[in-house]
Design a protein around this nucleic acid. Structure first.
Lengths: 239, 239
DNA sequence: GTGAGCCTGTGTTTTATAACACGACCGGGC
DNA sequence: GCCCGGTCGTGTTATAAAACACAGGCTCAC
């Protein structure tokens, strides 16, 4: 982890999350925006770095500017469950921030990533004074809660094939595909894929090979190129 | 289901959720409160009635006034997962309401229950104009999301005994105990207990009997009297 | 280059839990 | 009363997935 001190870089990164077209900060008055820029800090993380840790208190509202991040939660057995995959631009760890609780999961950079951390009091002030911003947070939390509830059921009820198929679909949903419209834009280890789908690494590897043998997808190292999205969706639906 | 038309009854029920000490409506101005009272409707449901159905659009913000409600989500296999147990006074189906989505789960009364349904536009107006109310909603959603994430991991990773033990602890957390400080104040069928803990009914019955044989708890019909909370917590922690 | 160590891959065994099958009980309606 | 459908309980079997074990290959450091 490295704090970005270069003024221009800092400003550019901040603006990514403050001025972005879908940003909840977008419509703030200039005064609030400039306050945000002045008080927030930007940090860069290398692939594999932890951005925050399960059990710790959030230090501010953290926005992912670039890179990819997995949100994982330790289970009793030591096996990690990937709770969510985060993409830029979006908040990470904002659940704990708004619940005023410790983090219940950790965030780890899947690629080199940059985040912007905003001062707690300032953000809370903005939520209280700007109802559109508050509504955005409410909608984001409600959407995430829906995702989590849906996930609970599929991870507990679907069989291995269905779980893995669904995970691949979720990954496309989140990160999209390369220009060929087939290769996932995210390159996960088999272990991460397993932790996302609630299975052992061996079973992720095995099931992935089966999918390849069946012509659903092609594997090339960490690249997953899906040949037949319909079939994949069908496998996911079947359970 | 029966709509409550008696004016006095209606007012009394409304006040339960508007004036209650922990109610997010508590501190509204009198004008908003009276508008809420005038425009909201109260309904009573018999045990077993469905209050809302997976796939439907929320008709308003629904507040549980009295009774107990289970929130269930259908899986692929047909098995239901109980996503949450609701107690009065509290909102049900508010996730879908605020996400502006269809319900992803159904609500069924476990006992005779009464709910109050508030007009969508009015509630949204209140959220937008009252930052404390908005913060309450944010905090509630963030808390529920934490619960859901934690549940996802334990339901997928813990073994049967751990899952059932945890469910019983969650039930105490939610509904509390009778005066003996040992008997759960909620009386679920074995099937509901199973659906809460992600297992088959047979296994819920079997595991419950095992707990009884081990002296962790005593069973008397649907009543669960826990003898050794520490041991139960230990079993839950062990997984 | 050349280990060392992780990631990937595959076969085999073990185990937790679902699925099935059946009987007893219990409570409500006629 | 007495049937009868739903809940409860228990033994048996089947099976999905974990656990284990081992081997080849890639990658990174030195």
């Amino acid at each position: 982890m490295r704090t970005i001190k270069d003024k221009e870089l800092h400003e550019r990164y901040c603006n990514t999350c403050i001025e972005g077209p879908h940003s909840p900060f977008h419509e703030l008055d200039d005064n609030s925006k400039s306050l945000l820029r002045q008080t927030s800090i930007c940090r860069s993380y290398k692939k594999g770095d932890h951005i925050y840790e399960e059990g710790n208190l959030p230090v501010g509202l953290t926005c992912l500017i670039s890179g990819k991040v997995k949100i994982t939660k330790k289970g009793i057995t030591g096996r990690n469950q990937i709770v969510r995959m985060a993409k830029p631009v979006g908040f990470i760890g904002y659940r704990a921030f708004f619940a005023e609780e410790n983090h219940i999961a950790s965030a780890e950079a899947l690629e080199d990533s940059i985040v912007c951390i905003m001062k707690t009091e300032l953000v809370i002030g903005i939520v209280r004074s700007n109802s559109n911003f508050a509504m955005n947070i409410i909608r984001a939390l409600a959407t995430d809660l829906g995702f989590s509830n849906r996930r609970t059921v599929t991870l507990t009820q679907k069989h291995i094939r269905g779980r893995l198929a669904e995970s691949i679909l979720v990954l496309r949903e989140t990160y999209g595909c390369e220009k060929d419209d087939a290769t996932l834009k995210v390159y996960l280890s088999r272990e991460d894929l397993a932790n996302l789908s609630n299975m052992t690494t061996s079973n992720a590897i095995r099931t992935l090979s089966n999918f390849a043998a069946e012509g659903v997808l092609e594997l090339n190292g960490k690249a997953i190129k899906v040949i037949d999205w319909d079939l994949l969706e069908h496998i996911s639906h079947l359970g």
